[in-house]
């Protein structure tokens, strides 16, 4: 049997998906990136190999997410694509006719508007990371609640507390204030969900025409409280697809299928998981820009470089991933 591998290296999670030739998911793996993207890609590959038992041969690899270039170099990806495109592709395949995708991840949140099956518009949060998964994580930790229990607790609320969602700093002080006034935790959590949804719709969803069917994906979609808050705010049902947390990886696998349509794969095999990869870096002193050049080393040998504006370092390598 043959299959396609999709890898999504995000700020918070690293996801791997293996699809069959028909695009149906055979195996998915969700790992926390924990600031170690290289190790997590390798760990994910190991787990994937163990789960497959050599029954499926990988004939295409796609990478996405903010660590896509890193993962692409390690695995020898056939396609390296941004996460907006991969999310849109995955959602429109999982739910044909989808018109709006709400996606909230660890460090970014985005809205993708599709019409007739293609992306018609999209927006991403700007420089501020308020209203993303990391903030929910942080607040759950402060209230000493497991992030997995967040959603079910929020669902127990009867009267959500009003919390200012414009800025994460204000939201936090508002929450502390409400908590000291004696409101119970579920109501505060539900209020936080509503504040995030309000913030999302005002900032990311500003001026966008949100039409049904709406798909809600990304790690935060696991939170039932957020789904309920979106449904209340939009006034119509919001669908969370079964593989909501690995949609980026799924899209990457689908793109890999397209990219290897008439040619072989560049996949370097699962044994890259055991090779020694290191990311190094240095500040180039060639000009006052002082670019921070990143080097990826495999067993002491440089296999990729990026981060330099002028190409002085990245261009000297034979095979290089162009990132800047």
């Amino acid at each position: 049997m043959y299959g396609y591998l999709g890898i999504d290296v995000g700020s918070v999670s690293t996801n791997l998906v293996l699809t069959g030739e028909d695009g149906i998911i055979k195996q998915s793996i969700y790992l926390r990136t924990q600031g170690k993207p290289i190790e997590m890609v390798q760990q994910g590959l190991k787990q994937m190999q163990a789960a497959l038992l050599d029954k499926i041969k990988v004939i295409g690899v796609g990478t996405t997410g903010s660590g896509r270039h890193l993962a692409g170099v390690i695995t020898g990806a056939d396609i390296i694509k941004n996460e907006i495109t991969t999310h849109a592709i995955a959602a429109s395949n999982v739910m044909p006719g989808v018109q709006t995708i709400l996606e909230i991840g660890g460090q970014d949140s985005k809205i993708i508007i599709l019409r007739n099956g293609i992306v018609a518009d999209f927006a991403m949060n700007t420089v501020c990371a308020a209203g993303t998964g990391s903030f929910l994580d942080q607040q759950a930790a402060r209230l000493n609640i497991k992030i997995e229990e967040f959603g079910s607790l929020a669902m127990q609320s009867s009267v959500p507390v009003r919390i200012a969602g414009r800025c994460a700093v204000f939201a936090e002080s508002d929450m502390i204030h409400k908590q000291q006034m004696g409101y119970n935790v579920p109501d505060i959590l539900a209020g936080l969900c509503e504040a995030l949804v309000r913030n999302y719709l005002n900032n990311v969803g500003k001026g966008k025409e949100i039409l049904q069917p709406v798909v809600f994906q990304g790690g935060v979609a696991a939170n039932a409280g957020m789904k309920a808050a979106f449904e209340r705010a939009l006034g119509h049902p919001v669908h969370v697809p079964p593989y909501f947390d690995v949609m980026g990886a799924l899209g990457a696998a689908m793109l890999a299928r397209e990219a290897t349509n008439r040619k072989g794969t560049g996949f370097r095999g699962f044994d890259v998981a055991d090779r020694d990869f290191k990311a190094g870096g240095f500040a180039c002193d060639g000009c006052p820009n002082v670019c921070e050049v990143v080097e990826i080393l495999e067993s002491g040998q440089v296999i990729a470089r990026w981060g330099d504006r002028c190409g002085r370092w990245s261009n000297v390598l034979e095979r290089h991933e162009k990132i800047s």
Binding site: K81, N82, E83, I84, T85, V119, A120, F122, I323
Partner: peptide, 11 residues
């Protein structure tokens, strides 16, 4: 910036 520009061009 790169992510947004790439996605924009794809779209």
């Amino acid at each position: 910036m790169v992510t947004r520009l790439e996605a924009f061009m794809d779209m």
